[in-house]
Lab assay of single mutants.
Amino acid sequence: MAAGGDHGSPDSYRSPLASRYASPEMCFVFSDRYKFRTWRQLWLWLAEAEQTLGLPITDEQIQEMKSNLENIDFKMAAEEEKRLRHDVMAHVHTFGHCCPKAAGIIHLGATSCYVGDNTDLIILRNALDLLLPKLARVISRLADFAKERASLPTLGFTHFQPAQLTTVGKRCCLWIQDLCMDLQNLKRVRDDLRFRGVKGTTGTQASFLQLFEGDDHKVEQLDKMVTEKAGFKRAFIITGQTYTRKVDIEVLSVLASLGASVHKICTDIRLLANLKEMEEPFEKQQIGSSAMPYKRNPMRSERCCSLARHLMTLVMDPLQTASVQWFERTLDDSANRRICLAEAFLTADTILNTLQNISEGLVVYPKVIERRIRQELPFMATENIIMAMVKAGGSRQDCHEKIRVLSQQAASVVKQEGGDNDLIERIQVDAYFSPIHSQLDHLLDPSSFTGRASQQVQRFLEEEVYPLLKPYESVMKVKAELCL
């Protein structure tokens, strides 16, 4: 049975990233139509530049190519590739079939990587351009969430054990800070992308030097003109047959890092959902379990974690691919890159769409948070109580021993009897502590235990987050809708 299948058929496997999760716009960027249309555009740009620099290419040939950029006979191309065992030459023939007058000058002087690699770089750039505003929107939604809850005390956790208090907004800023680093890295790697350009079979530009009869300047002009037509500021000066596969490492490393950030955020949300302090959106008709109707599973956060793990592992592909590119190139890269580049971007696209949807509907339960604080705060307040007693004339050592005994009794009630923490009640009825009984409410005010959390939130948002989001103001209103 021949390899390949009808990918629109229910009898043929289709990647869930495309069929179930990723956005239509990201799927289109990695589609065959987008790819092969870009090949034709690159052939047109090459012909236009070659004509401008004096090669015998007519206006009629150029116009014929322009008129057929979208006229792609995919069936013919597939048949040609089956016959020739070469995808680029299959599309040269297919393009030439609908451009008979231009057929002889299509791909003039070029090698397969002229269309293959340059198209990949265009796709990487455009895919990054799709991700950047999506990530900015996630940051914006979380920034709104953090600002609104900047002063809401909550129990902090280290080692997932109760620690000092923080605020809900401050905790959210930990998430935002990681995503801001990801946004900066995505922008950097996007701006650092260079075009492969017009380089020939081993990167020496020998074929173009021959076409222009040894004119170095025209060869350099050709490279520059096509690079500018493709919208790049610069091209690699040095290439082998391909652009260095280190570029793929750079791009997928940034995406993998984004995956790590999203995994951490969504894990926190899942843990908070278990504590009943916070939940992701839950639709009115949504079913959490087929057997347990009360369940409210954090399905979206779980999906993000599941896909983020996949995204983090994909960076190993370009690392290994770059390491086995012998001399000017081997074909070890080809099949692998067809999979890992598309999957990385479709996965990143999915987790950003999902995280935006989550961040637009996060639900906080202040009463649950308050109750958990009441359970733990008495123990945390013991040092403040000791200091207040010393100020009232008591002995630190005597007070410490009193607190120690009462704390152990209260802990026994919590752990052995399943009761509430009654340390404060014990202190309130103990005559030894009568000098500070009137101060206990103040000493137990949760806001006095959150330090500068709310001020940190305000400063972080104003100095770091809002300036970073400013270039994306025009796209901030787009909502994230999930079908599944």
Rank of each mutant, 00 (worst) to 15 (best):
Asp215Lys: 15
Lys199Gln: 05
His91Asp: 03
His86Val: 02
Leu255Cys: 12
His97Gly: 08
Ala411Val: 08
Ala348Thr: 13
Pro56Lys: 11
Asp6Thr: 12
His107Ser: 01
Glu148Cys: 11
Ile105Phe: 09
Met299Asp: 02
Pro435Gly: 07
His437Leu: 06
Leu307Ile: 15
Ala163Ile: 00
Gly5Phe: 11
Met299Arg: 04
Leu131Pro: 04
Thr111Ala: 00
Leu131Glu: 15
Arg396Lys: 01
Ile424Glu: 11
Phe282Thr: 09
Ile122Glu: 00
Tyr466Ala: 15
Lys199Val: 04
Phe30Arg: 01
Arg329Thr: 03
His263Gln: 07
Ala18Thr: 15
Tyr432Met: 07
Val405Glu: 11
Met76Tyr: 12
His107Pro: 00
Ala3Glu: 12
Val364Ile: 14
Ala344Tyr: 12
Arg149Trp: 11
Tyr432Glu: 09
Ser261Lys: 01
Ser434Arg: 13
Asp349Val: 05
His400Glu: 03
His310Trp: 06
Tyr432Gly: 08
Pro24Gly: 10
Gly214Cys: 09
Arg83Ala: 12
Leu124Ile: 12
Met26Ala: 03
Ser359Gly: 12
Asn274Leu: 07
Trp175Phe: 00
Arg190Ala: 08
Leu482Lys: 08
Asp420Gly: 03
Ile105Gln: 06
Ala127Cys: 07
Ala206Asp: 00
Ile339Ala: 13
Thr350Asp: 14
Cys180Pro: 00
Leu352Arg: 02
Ser438Leu: 08
Val364Ser: 04
Leu193Phe: 13
Thr58Phe: 12
Ala110Lys: 02
Ile237Phe: 05
Leu130Pro: 00
Leu124Tyr: 09
Arg337Trp: 03
Leu311Ser: 05
Leu423Ala: 05
Val405Thr: 15
Ile249Glu: 02
Met312Ile: 13
Leu121Arg: 01
Ala103Pro: 06
Leu341Lys: 11
Ser289Leu: 00
Thr201Trp: 02
Leu252Arg: 03
Cys399Met: 04
Leu355Cys: 10
Leu258Asn: 07
Asp216Tyr: 12
Arg337Asn: 03
Arg234Ser: 14
Gly231Asn: 09
Arg20Ala: 00
Ser23Cys: 14
Ile57Tyr: 00
Ile265Asn: 05
Ser67Trp: 09
Phe449Ala: 01
Lys35Leu: 10
Ala143Ser: 13
Met89Leu: 01
Leu222Pro: 03
Tyr466Ile: 14
Ser306Asp: 02
Gln458Asp: 14
Leu142Ile: 08
Asp144Cys: 14
Ser19Glu: 15
Ala127Asn: 04
Leu423Asp: 07
Glu376Phe: 05
Ile369Asp: 07
Val198Cys: 15
Ala348Met: 12
Thr58Asp: 10
Ala344Gly: 14
Tyr294Gly: 03
Glu79Trp: 13
Ala273Leu: 03
Tyr34Lys: 06
Arg396Ala: 06
Val251Ala: 14
Trp43Ile: 01
